Amino acid sequence: MIVRQRPHALKLFFTLRGSVIQQIYPQLLIITLLSSLVATIQHVSPGFFPSYTTTPFALLGIALSLFLGFRNNASYDRWWEAREQWGQLMIDARSLARQVISFMDQEMEAGPQTRQRLIYLTIAFVHALRHQLRDTSPWQDIDRYVEPEHHAVLRNARNTPEALLRLMGKKVGYCRRQRLLSEFLVQSMDERITSMTGVLSACERIKNTPLPFAYALLVHRTTYLYCFMLPFGLVSSLGVVTPLVCVVIAYTFFGLDALSEELEEPFGLAANDLPLSAMSRAIEISLLEALDVTELPPEITPENGYLH
């Protein structure tokens, strides 16, 4: 994720961080060369390209803007829903830890160890969810928070976060049988685990259900056709200025298209994706502090303006 910048007016035109120029510069280069070639031919041989009215290009540009705007709104909705789900996960994890710390009977022999293990499982779930959404290996982050006898079960599980939630449920059931928690608190903690299950399912839905391919294909094709046809329609009226105008229009349309693709998958490692690593570490630190752990992992800070 890009750390918020507030560039002044001049710097705004030269800022690359957070922009999509890196993704679309090949298309812009092609449009520049094509429009320059068309403008040069028209300048050397006036009348080589017939004079067209710009009305069809204006109408097509309006329609394309509507399509791109709708697609960007849909992509942003996915990005924002993903952020809301991780915000809910932070609420659930902190609330569950608070309930465990505040109400679990610490006078009984099994109390302190059970409290620690339940909070550790919560931390492991957060890391496991992040790794599943990014298709990376979670074991380096979660092994130290899970009892060794559960490692084999987790490695054989098809869905590691879901397996961790089951272990958390068993721990709550153990607390009920050992009378470490009252019936009311057991129900309240189970509701928190259920809410975390909802976060897991919602994130899986966002990850596994992209926008319809046919719609994305239509927008891609229309954008390319429009930008490649544009120099031929404008050269008779704009002349040598045609390359500049075409590149600006192409930057707008190709940029919106590339940005919507990036926001469509909010759990990745692209510049504008969610900083799942930083959010996971924030939850981890918060829960370890609840256990009065003094040696905390360092916070993840931005590197070169990026927060991962």
Rank of each mutant, 00 (worst) to 15 (best):
P161G: 02
I123T: 05
G173D: 11
N73E: 09
L234M: 14
S45E: 13
I283E: 04
Q116C: 06
S195G: 12
T114P: 00
Q113M: 13
L217E: 15
G169D: 05
E162I: 00
A74R: 13
S65F: 09
G18T: 04
T114W: 03
Q178Y: 03
L33W: 00
H150L: 13
C175D: 01
T53A: 14
P212W: 13
L16W: 11
L218Y: 13
L238Y: 15
F267W: 02
S51C: 03
L230S: 02
C203H: 02
L274Q: 04
Y306W: 10
L211R: 07
G18L: 06
C175T: 05
L269R: 09
R134D: 01
V126I: 08
V240H: 11
K11E: 14
W86N: 00
A124P: 01
F228M: 14
R78D: 00
Q116K: 14
R117E: 14
N208A: 11
S188K: 12
I283L: 07
T194D: 09
D190H: 12
E162W: 07
L165R: 04
R94A: 08
P212Y: 13
R134A: 08
D273E: 08
E262H: 11
R177H: 09
K207Q: 12
A74E: 13
L180C: 02
P302D: 06
I62C: 09
T114E: 08
V293Q: 12
Q88C: 00
V38R: 03
R4L: 14
I300G: 02
P161W: 02
P231V: 04
Q88P: 00
E191A: 15
A93S: 15
H8M: 13
L29Q: 00
A58I: 09
Y306V: 06
P46E: 08
V219I: 15
N159D: 15
S51W: 05
